[in-house]
């Protein structure tokens, strides 16, 4: 039995709102696949259908060879699901939570300790603490341990990065890669573009549709236009001014910089020096301009505009 996820023309509406529209998706065995998109893009709806919590209006999907509608009983033992919101029992201790979920799946902590050991070992010193009293990062590790306790073939992680500090987030992704290397298929959704680069392949989602599926490198490689990063003391004015720059296709805030995207035709000849000169003429101070490598976020913004 393969660990693949296959979805064919899945659709789901809530009343008049169409949450996902004709989604086709194919996730290979043993890869970390990212669903990238802003809030409301339909990521969670897709997740809930694939984890058999929600029935699709039309279309079909299989996870690990099991149909999400017909074989949902077997499916539930084959998948691990970590919802976006921390949803373990806050008034149970770390160990009790883990024991509970192990027993619900008819297994025990000891039986599957190997798989969760690298993760659980980090929170084991706090095993008598109530889950509600854990920090965000530790809660996440516990939730992941609980989702893995029954040795699932496919792991679903709905926005795992939300509410977790950067260090824990990095650790978390290391763990995911480790699990992938053990053969698990991992589907992860995130609104954070930087997490996209950590996936093997990503799908960019917007308004219930998948706009592009590729490796992060493949996606950024599709970005053809010249891209620059600039900053000065007055960022708001800077963005406004740069939009008027000759050959500018778009300019948007990007972290502490503004990203300036130029048209391939008119803007192709412009250089860092040209932009600096332009900004100096507009009385910007402490100007810094450099050429930038396109990221997934730049591609996303590009795709959103079309």
């Amino acid at each position: 039995m393969s660990n693949k996820i296959e979805a064919k023309i899945l659709s789901k509406s809530y009343g008049k709102v169409q949450a996902i529209k004709n989604i086709n998706l194919s996730v290979n065995e043993g890869e970390i696949f990212g669903l990238i998109g802003p809030d409301g893009a339909g990521k969670t709806t897709l997740f809930r259908i694939l984890t058999s919590l929600l029935l699709p209006d039309s279309g079909s999907a299989t996870v690990a060879g099991l149909d999400v509608v017909k074989d949902y009983k077997q499916l539930r033992t084959a998948i691990g699901y970590m919802p976006g919101r921390f949803s373990l029992y806050q008034d149970l201790t770390v160990e009790e939570n883990l024991e509970f979920f192990a027993s619900v799946f008819g297994t025990s902590i000891r039986e599957n300790y190997d798989l969760i050991a690298p993760i659980y070992a980090q929170i084991e010193p706090f095993k008598d603490r109530r889950a509600g009293a854990l920090s965000g990062g530790m809660k996440q590790k516990l939730a992941l341990s609980c989702a893995l306790i029954h040795k699932p073939k496919v792991l679903f992680l709905d926005e795992p990065g939300t509410g977790v500090d950067p260090v824990s987030r990095k650790e978390f992704w290391d763990m995911l890669r480790n699990l992938r290397d053990q053969g698990l298929t991992i589907l992860v959704s995130t609104p954070y573009m930087d997490e996209a680069e950590l996936c093997d392949r990503v799908a960019l989602m917007q308004n219930g549709e998948i706009m592009a599926v590729d490796t992060p490198q493949g996606i950024t490689a599709g970005f053809q236009q010249p891209l620059f990063a600039a900053r000065s003391d007055n960022m708001y004015q800077l963005i406004k001014d740069l939009r008027a720059f000759e050959g500018a296709a778009d300019c948007y805030a990007f972290g502490e910089y503004a990203h300036l995207k130029l048209n391939t035709g008119v803007g192709a000849g412009q250089t860092v020096a040209d932009i600096r000169k332009f900004l100096d003429s507009r009385n910007h101070r402490n100007v810094e301009v450099k050429s930038a490598k396109p990221t997934v976020e730049d591609c996303f913004i590009e795709l959103m505009k079309n």
Binding site: S52, K73, R76, R85, F86, S87, L88, V104, F105
Partner: peptide
């Protein structure tokens, strides 16, 4: 409300 039912619903219970 706290979301634990979501976690339980994906179990074979």
């Amino acid at each position: 409300e706290i979301g634990t039912i979501e976690q339980l619903n994906v179990t074979p219970v």
